[in-house]
Design a protein around this nucleic acid. Structure first.
Lengths: 132, 132
DNA sequence: CAGAATCCGAGGCGATACTG
DNA sequence: CAGTATCGCCTCGGATTCTG
């Protein structure tokens, strides 16, 4: 992490080292992406291999179709995933992860793992907190 | 990650293996926590050492004090951080990371690193996408 | 199949003011 | 210092409907 207390981070031109703690640093944008919980799940799925739209929709329970297409579009813009359309009838679209996206996915999958492994402890902590 | 396509995940009593992809699996709750972008930043800060309230406030630029206290409370409930009050005048409160929180923080810090290291590529991808 | 468009409510979040 | 309380914007995100 960048050095605490410094006030660089607004980046673009000057290239002061990016710093997530800095208010308007674009790195915050990455964190904002993860705020889409769907991004995490999509990354995880696509890192296993390419998927079609409705395939993703089925594999990620609870996602509304609007959210899915919206999120996919953002991720494509960020260069995290690629989109390829095939001129079949009806049209077929395949989403795949990019090399860049893959590096992020590897980090993100670890978070998902953490969630699956430690959820019990979290739930226990909540229960004990609430019992108070 | 849990096996795709299965429909366990609703967990609590039966202990089917938790699965983030499952709609009502409590592991989603963890992802929802990361949706608080502040959680990420707080974890990162506290993993460096204990902090006091206003100290955190200053070190995390842009956080409203309401959000900070709110987020800290949630994280305490989740067992990710601890809170200790000292009966000084005026009162002193110190937040610190728990062992559980530390394991999550280590994952999360990597995301922050990723953001700082790859932000340029993301911005470039966006620019090229928009130029289209 | 892969989406775009619209409607709409709940709540995330910030700004401000007050307290012990 | 370390919060709580209140207000209001405004976005997120779900449900529904329509299209090529």
């Amino acid at each position: 992490m960048s050095t605490p207390g410094t006030t660089e981070g607004t980046v673009p031109s000057g290239h002061a080292s990016p710093n997530v703690f800095c208010e308007h640093c674009p790195t915050r944008l990455v964190l904002d992406r993860l705020s889409d919980k769907w991004v995490v799940l999509i990354l995880a799925r696509l890192s296993e291999g390419p998927r079609r739209f409705n395939q993703l929709r089925r594999e990620i329970e609870g996602v509304a179709q609007k959210m899915l297409s919206q999120t996919l579009k953002k991720m494509e813009r960020d260069g995290l995933i690629g989109r390829q359309a095939f001129a079949t009838v009806p049209v077929t679209v395949e989403y795949s992860i990019t090399p860049l996206g893959l590096t992020l996915a590897s980090k993100v999958v670890e978070i998902a793992h953490w969630a699956e492994e430690n959820i019990e402890q979290v739930l226990a902590a909540q229960a004990s907190y609430d019992a108070n």
